[in-house]
Structures are given as C-alpha cells and as structure tokens.
Write a protein that binds this DNA or RNA. Structure first.
Lengths: 125, 125
DNA sequence: CGTAGTGTCCTAATGTGATAGTACAAGCAG
DNA sequence: CTGCTTGTACTATCACATTAGGACACTACG
C-alpha cells in the first residue's frame, strides 16, 4: 500500500502535490504496473483532503494515460504508462528538465552530489 | 542586479515562487547584505506580474526580517539574516523540486536510476 | 519649493483551489 | 434481484491569488 503525502500548508495546491506524488511513485516502481491505488474516498480520508480533489487528480492522470479506472472496481496503474516519444526528443526534454532541476537547486545552495544523494533517498523509499 | 524568475503557468502561486527566489538569492550570497532590490514597479514589469504581487512579497519578507524597506528610497537586504532559519525551508523546497523532477521525467518515461545517471553525466562535464 | 521616484494602501473584478453535500452510474458478491 | 463498493457528476460556498487602477505618504534632488 503506497503512502502518499501532501502538505495542506504548502502554497503549492494539493492536487499538484498529489499528482507529483503519484507520478513519482510510479516512476520509482513503488507502484507497479497493474497495482491498485487507494480508493478515492479512502485516500481522501488518509490525506485529510476532500474526495473531489482526489477524484480530479485520478481523472487527470487517467487522461494522461498513467492510470486506468474501472467504475465500481477501483483505480489501477496502466501497463504502459509512458507513451514513447522519439528517443532524441525524450533525451532533449530530459536534458532541459535536468538543467532546470540543477539550476533551481543551485539557487537553494545545493550541489550536484547532494542532488544525487537526494535521488538515492527517493530510490530507497 | 539579481535575476529572479517566476513561471506563471506553474500551479505554485507567483508570490511563493518569488518569495523562494529572493530567499535563495540571499541564502547563496547572490544578494549581499545591504544590496538594493529592484523597485516594486520595475520588478513587476520585468516579471510580467502585477506590482501588488511584488509589493506583498517584499512586505512579507520584511515582516520575516529578511528585508528592510525605506519609503521613497527602496528595498534592501537586511544586515544579518540568519542562515539557520532558511535551512528547513531549503530542505522542504528541495523535496518539492525533487518530487517535481521525478514526476516530470516520469511523463517522458524515464525511471529514477536513469535520472541518477543523468546527473552523474552532468557531474562529469 | 516642485517634481520624480519610491513604498503603501484601497477597491473592484476575475479565476482557481478546496470544501461539503448530494446524487447518479457501474461493477461485484451474496 | 439486493446491497455494497467503486468512480463520476453536480451544485453551492468559501478562501485565496492575481489583476487593474487609482490614491496617498515619504524621500531625494534640482
């Protein structure tokens, strides 16, 4: 059972935090293909947020092809959640993402080795 | 002349992004003690943001003791902003950055180990 | 003095995020 | 079928973020 977390005091909207949490959980393998996510109502209780907020995140992730929902059954991780774009395109996008990540973290005073160990921590979760 | 940046398409409120940018600039020494910040109106133009939004961030940072404002003169970095106070803030921001990085990369189909090796490559440059 | 530049304050309007509550639709087990 | 659980849809309400525009207070400078 995955454990998502949101911070209701953060200026970042709850839906955005939950969206990233779920994407990250899938990316790290914490949520495997076909795994069932908590029900809308259950996750709402666990996170102390409104069920509508959870439902909208699930709906958005389904629109994005990450999840598959079956009415009356539950919500599951899709088999092939990553639609393959061209390799070159993906590499280029990743490069930009990485550059931005490093830049933002550098503004906070973090160095590259610290970022790597941070990702390792995520890997261990 | 520090260069702050905000992303109006991000779900994170502009005021929060700007707040973070300024704190980061001070924390990293990019903005030294006593340095003058851009004027409220000028920064608003630079960032394509409303002057009220900038003014409120400045006011908030002054309440937090980071800045000092002098009417009719400008806004300046306070002499001794405590570096310890920003540590928890930095850790939290790094957590959000990391989660976002992983989530965005997941959209491209990249997994955590791939991200780590990507950062390793950057390290070698 | 007058002027320009600065921060501050105010109102109004719009859009979004989050909530509560209710109701409906689809699947499964008895 | 009945009952339960699931996702979905809708209204209404509240709070906040952002914008526009204007007005005011203070300071430096000629």
């Amino acid at each position: 059972m995955p454990t998502f977390s949101v911070d209701s005091t953060s200026p970042t909207p709850i839906y955005a935090q939950l969206d990233r949490s779920i994407r990250a959980a899938i990316a790290t393998g914490e949520l495997e293909s076909g795994a069932q996510l908590p029900t809308v109502r259950q996750l709402a209780v666990d996170l102390s947020v409104n069920a509508n907020t959870v439902a909208r995140v699930y709906a958005q992730l389904e629109r994005d092809g990450m999840l598959e929902t079956r009415r009356g059954v539950g919500t599951f991780v899709r088999e092939s959640p990553s639609p393959q774009a061209s390799r070159a395109h993906r590499e280029r996008e990743l490069g930009e993402l990485t550059k931005r990540f490093i830049g933002d973290a550098a503004l906070l005073g973090f160095t590259l080795p610290e970022l790597i160990s941070q990702l390792r921590n995520e890997e261990m979760k």
